Computed example of a mutant assay.
Amino acid sequence: MEDNVELDHVARIQRAWSRERPDLDVSPQGVIGRLHRVAGHLTEQLQVVYRRYGLGEGEFDVLATLRRSGEPFERAPGELAAHTMVTTGAMTKRLDRLERDGLVARRPSATDGRGRVVALTEAGRELIDRAFTDHMRNERRLLDELSPADAEQLEAILTRWLALLEPPAPA
């Protein structure tokens, strides 16, 4: 790296580590550090839309999971926790808030006498439909910063990498 070239945040960190620890290969920071920073920026931009609808990321995730489950737009709390990758305790807090706001309803399961289900209310369905439409517009805006070819290549790379890090979910 030349001294007169403007370095991004990650490159400056790599340069400092290369100076302080020349015995280590710091090149992985180039990918991991930038990916981490991009993820942070994307999360900030995605949360703008969630907040517009009075939702946090977790509440949006629950409503979206219920909505994409299809009619009758309901799941057991444990299924929701598994689909959104949070603990059942965290799920309970999310559901309490969503139920308080009239966006979901909890009721006994028709198929399991001891079980319960969480269902989208009409207000919840209307809200997530509007929020998801804006969310997709926002994601398109963010992705449009890349060329279509770059976006396609990035998706392919990330798909392969994620498959190595995360076991495939059952069908």
Rank of each mutant, 00 (worst) to 15 (best):
R68G: 06
G58Q: 00
L63P: 05
L146R: 05
Q14M: 15
Y50L: 04
D3I: 06
G70N: 09
G113A: 09
E74M: 05
L158S: 14
A169N: 07
F73R: 14
L42I: 13
R94D: 02
T159V: 14
T84K: 00
M1H: 10
D25F: 04
E139A: 12
T121R: 09
L154W: 10
R100Q: 06
L154C: 09
V38D: 09
Q14E: 15
R67K: 12
A82F: 02
G124E: 01
G30Y: 12
E71M: 12
P148L: 03
A105Y: 03
L146A: 07
D25G: 06
R94Y: 03
A110Q: 02
S27K: 13
M136L: 15
R141N: 07
L95W: 03
T84V: 02
E139Y: 09
L143R: 13
V117G: 01
H36D: 09
F73S: 11
E122P: 05
R140P: 11
L98G: 00
V38S: 07
L146W: 07
I13V: 15
A156D: 12
P167T: 13
D129M: 05
P168T: 08
T121Y: 10
L55M: 02
G124S: 00
Q14F: 05
L35C: 05
G54L: 08
T111L: 08
A16W: 11
R97P: 00
L63A: 05
H41G: 06
G102L: 03
V10P: 04
L80R: 01
L120S: 14
I13A: 12
M85C: 07
E2T: 15
D96H: 15
G115I: 01
D25E: 05
G102H: 01
Q29V: 12
E2W: 13
T84L: 00
K93E: 06
P168R: 15
R116N: 08
R52P: 07
V86I: 07
Y50F: 10
P168F: 04
L24F: 10
L24D: 07
L146Q: 07
V62M: 02
P170A: 12
P170T: 10
P28Q: 10
V5A: 10
V104L: 01
L164F: 11
H135F: 13
L95V: 04
E126V: 13
L162H: 14
Q29N: 09
A81W: 00
Y53I: 05
S27I: 11
I32W: 14
V117M: 02
S69Y: 12
L165D: 04
A171N: 12
R12H: 08
A171M: 10
E99Y: 00
Q45P: 07
H135W: 10
L98A: 00
Y50K: 05
R130P: 04
V31T: 14
V38L: 13
L142W: 04
Q153W: 07
V5M: 08
E139Q: 14
R75Y: 00
L165N: 07
E59K: 01
